[in-house]
Design a protein around this nucleic acid. Structure first.
Length: 222
DNA sequence: TGCCAGGCCGGGT
DNA sequence: ACCCGGCATGGC
């Protein structure tokens, strides 16, 4: 790693500008979005969120009172709607039962404890948990997603085999603990990924990070 | 048109 | 401990 991760962040910020993540109006809306966006484009999620807003379901107790099959129809545009309706129900049940529906209380819990609790909820894995902690809770947690992994492996910064925790640790090892930095950085990596690091149609030769690499360019995609 | 999107779970080896 | 299929709509 000849260049600090700071430089990468600064270059991306210079090129793309602030991303203003998370695109949610309230912490609860961010949580709902975090579940709905799993392996799905944000565009689809927006439609589902809009439908929930139309019927005033973007708050814990209201959503908790909705039947699953009704929820399914409302979130249909987000895809995987049966699965996600149940996942949302689980998350909301957790918030209502464990924290009386208060995100204020929920985010008062220590990060490590809350992370473990979130991971124990059906439908919440590492990325969703961390997205909730960072983007809904404003806590210093770095979010790793498929783009992050792909970008780092294609540039030879980490092994392809690196798992979620290893990738996350890579950022913790090279960055100061800074919520605003974590927030912007993840958003910028996703932005970069969409333009230059898609699973298919990668445009590594045009990648703006190319100039930061010692050998003049990203390695070939796997 | 086919392939993929800001994952996660459960069953099979 | 892996490995893999299933889940589903909408966009390029």
């Amino acid at each position: 790693m000849t260049n600090s991760l700071h430089e990468v962040h600064d270059l991306l910020l210079e090129k793309f500008g602030p991303q203003h993540w998370w695109p949610g109006r309230t912490p609860f809306e961010v949580i709902v979005g975090a579940v709905l966006v799993q392996n799905t484009s944000w565009k689809n999620v927006e439609k589902a969120i809009d439908q929930l807003r139309q019927v005033d379901l973007l708050e814990p107790h209201a959503l908790h009172d909705v039947a699953v099959d009704e929820l399914e129809e409302l979130i249909r545009p987000a895809g995987y709607f049966r699965v996600k309706a149940r996942r949302l129900s689980s998350v909301v049940a957790f918030i209502v039962q464990r924290y009386e529906g208060s995100l204020q209380r929920m985010f008062s819990t220590s990060i490590d404890t809350l992370r473990e609790e979130l991971l124990s909820v059906h439908g919440i894995g590492p990325e969703t948990a961390d997205s909730i902690l960072l983007y809904a809770g404003g806590l210093p947690v770095f979010v790793v997603d498929a783009y992050t992994h792909r970008i780092l492996t294609r540039h030879g910064w980490i092994d392809f085999e690196a798992d979620y925790h290893a990738v996350q640790q890579f950022f913790y090892d090279h960055l100061p603990q800074d919520v605003a930095l974590y927030n912007e950085y993840h958003a910028l990596l996703v932005r970069l990924g969409k333009d230059y690091c898609r699973k298919s149609k990668p445009k590594c030769n045009e990648c703006p990070l190319r100039e930061l690499l010692p050998d003049g360019g990203p390695i070939e995609p796997e």
